[in-house]
């Protein structure tokens, strides 16, 4: 199994009157064909890390490799077509479902794509008849599926998911999880899935990394991490007792181990 992404000593900070450290010295590998989950409390730097993978943001230090080559060597537009991203909220364009799905292909070459929308609607478990509907008239769950279909229509090699179920009810969440697992298994899509929900990470992830306060706490096979966490912070997170700044809940402000005890929590996870 090859390494799809490699993050080598990646840090991200925002300069200003007070420098805000969002990520510190992250080393992480995304294996090809697997679902890698990045879990952590809110404000841990998960979404920031994701946006570095398709260069919506640039790292302040370190290097990111895709298939062994620095991503900065690729034309950014091509990188983003190879590495698709689905966001927390669907952000569909105010047009028909078909136009939304054909959006990416149309950016490459403006023409008709007969049958494309129907194919991807089926792939994400929606009725192809929805193609002509106004995207704004769909339920949030349907919109998120269309959003996934829109990203898949670019035929990416890697799919980045930024908490794609956080706005959905449990039923829709479970459907999206099933869908993503099926996509991973059927077409071998490499997936990087960011979530603050550890149960979701346990359900969907082949490999998992825990981030807290912008630092990697632990990384490994998902089952192993949940069965026998090696780090006290991981144990606290799994027990639901970890704050975004890496401290214990219930007023205990001290870090539970040495993982970045001086870290200032990210002020802003999204750009």
């Amino acid at each position: 199994m090859g390494k799809k992404f490699e993050l080598l000593g990646v840090s991200k900070w925002k300069d200003g009157p007070k420098r805000a450290e969002l990520l510190r010295d992250i080393n992480f590998t995304v294996d090809e064909g697997l679902i890698s989950t990045i879990m952590g409390p809110s404000g841990a730097g998960k979404s920031t890390l994701l946006t570095l993978l398709n260069r919506l943001e640039e790292p302040s230090a370190g290097q990111i490799l895709l298939d062994g080559a620095p991503i900065t060597q690729l034309e950014v537009v091509n990188l983003r077509r190879r590495v698709g991203m689905v966001f927390q909220t669907p952000a569909l364009f105010p047009m028909t479902v078909e136009q939304n799905i054909c959006y990416g292909p149309n950016l490459r070459q403006r023409r008709e794509y007969p049958g494309l929308a129907a194919r991807y609607l089926e792939m994400v478990g929606l009725d192809p008849e929805l193609a002509g509907r106004d995207a704004g008239n769909l339920s949030v769950g349907q919109q998120q599926r269309v959003s996934i279909a829109r990203t898949l229509a670019n035929e990416p090699e890697v799919l980045l998911l930024d908490e794609p179920t956080s706005a959905l009810d449990p039923t829709a969440t479970s459907q999206i999880e099933e869908l993503i697992r099926a996509l991973n298994q059927k077409i071998g899509l490499t997936i990087v899935w960011v979530t603050h929900d550890m149960q979701q990470a346990a359900r969907v992830g082949d490999r998992t990394m825990l981030l807290a306060s912008g630092e990697k706490v632990e990384e490994g096979e998902t089952k192993a991490i949940f069965a026998s966490p090696q780090n006290e912070v991981t144990r606290l997170f799994i027990a639901g007792r970890l704050n975004g700044n890496g401290s214990k809940l219930n007023g205990d402000k001290g870090r539970s181990d040495g993982a970045g005890s001086e870290s200032t929590g990210p002020e802003e996870e999204h750009k």
């Binding site: 398709n54 537009v77 983003r80 991203m85 364009f93 990416g104 490459r108 829109r150």
Partner: peptide, 26 residues
């Protein structure tokens, strides 16, 4: 405009010119 819209357009592979045109249309 919703800042997520810009990120969404960029992540679908739009170049700067396409991004500007789409944002102006929106």
């Amino acid at each position: 405009l919703n800042p997520k819209l810009r990120l969404q357009i960029l992540s679908l592979g739009a170049n700067r010119r396409q991004l500007m045109w789409i944002l102006l249309r929106e």
